[in-house]
Design a binder for these strands. Structure first.
Lengths: 216, 216
DNA sequence: CGCAGGTTTGAGCACCCTCAACGAATGTGG
DNA sequence: CCACATTCGTTGAGGGTGCTCAAACCTGCG
């Protein structure tokens, strides 16, 4: 991480104050680090001794097969905590999707002290992953996209206008599809008037109910 | 690990004890309940106030879509703990696959006390789920079956002879395939001499290296 | 022995992937 | 400011993997 700038906490202008008790009480040293788009936060096999909180921006967690196939297991948006690992080495890669501020929480070595606060967050991640298994295992392309858009909308406060920080390739690798299929489904939903595409990275949901039906 | 050790009283004359009444006095109260094959342990939407440990047998965790499609997110074999939930209602169904003994742990209401010991178990489940996402999102039928067989073998001590407690339907719903495809891949692997099928529910891995290559 | 549930095998088709070309958006250097 | 390169996204044609539908085959069990 040598190439990255590091700031001390309170002076950072953009983000709002941390509300999470976990963030506060872990105390000790907390730095917000800026990761430019596409840069690595940690890699598979690296030693795991920190947790991270997204202050602004977005990150992707993924794994690779030997031949290069990639599966993104989760996106994490502003406010979310990531970096949990069983054992002390990372099983996944983490990268910034866009310019992203990450607060480093030095708690892993003292994980026991904060287990009370971390357990609910870990369980939240577990439920999310298991629900995503249903999407990948049993839903077709349209259902996957619909579920994805609903999820992103909810995580952005239920707004009808969604700002996607990730590329079509990222979406494809998250949903177990190809970029062509993702693009085709977007076009199809647009043609049917379910969504509008004001720009490449933003989506407006115009027929909420229809989208919800498609996601089921 | 004081808490976990108390689970490991391996003394079962199996009394099907009503899991409901009196014994709420301490977290030490533990009943082993026998669930016959196919019976429900808990259902989606039910209140979640227990954790469970498989003493013998096997269970499946799954979720349903409105039209009946099912995705099994995990199998739990003897010795494993399940029943973690975010919030206090179950998001999934749990059923016994075969006759199964389950130890009921009355800890959820006092989860904070045991967070230190539960967190690693929860994280283990999280890693498993995320690795399974790679299988469902990016691997073909042969790779999925190969990965499944490798996993089951490892969880049974690395033996070449695997006893499958679950049906083809369960395997299909775990791997995001149909029973026909599962059956076809099994046959194909048998024809190629990679596995033998001594009986319906047991598999013998004859070419370990080949199977491992296929799983990649 | 006969039934029932689970498993295997086959034929045809649908959905999604592959390969390819084109169009749009962004950045760079002249 | 434009020409160009590069990356990203869209659209089309064709093919393959796995699904659907259907029938036959076990295998355990009454």
């Amino acid at each position: 991480m040598a190439f990255l700038e590091t700031f001390q906490t309170p002076s950072y202008p953009i983000h709002s104050e941390p509300a999470s008790p976990a963030g506060r009480r872990s105390a000790g040293f907390q730095a917000v680090t800026l990761f430019p788009a596409g840069t690595e936060i940690y890699a598979q096999g690296e030693k795991s001794d920190c947790l991270y909180k997204v202050e602004f921006g977005a990150i992707r967690i993924y794994r690779l097969l030997a031949d290069g196939r990639r599966q993104i297991s989760a996106f994490h948006l502003a406010g979310e905590i990531f970096g949990f690992e069983a054992g002390n080495t990372h099983h996944f890669f983490a990268e910034a999707i866009c310019a992203t501020g990450v607060r480093v929480l030095r708690t892993a070595s003292r994980q026991n002290e904060f287990a009370n606060e971390l357990l609910p967050v870990a369980l939240q991640g577990l439920v999310r992953a298991q629900e995503h298994l249903l999407v990948l295992g049993r839903q077709n392309a349209v259902e996957r996209i619909a579920a994805f858009l609903m999820d992103m909308s909810e995580r952005q406060g239920g707004l009808t206008r969604i700002e996607l920080s990730m590329s079509r390739t990222d979406i494809a690798d998250y949903l177990g599809l190809t970029i062509e299929t993702v693009s085709r489904v977007f076009s199809k939903l647009r043609q049917k008037g379910v969504i509008r595409l004001p720009s490449l990275r933003s989506v407006e949901i115009t027929k909420w109910q229809t989208l919800q039906d498609l996601a089921a």
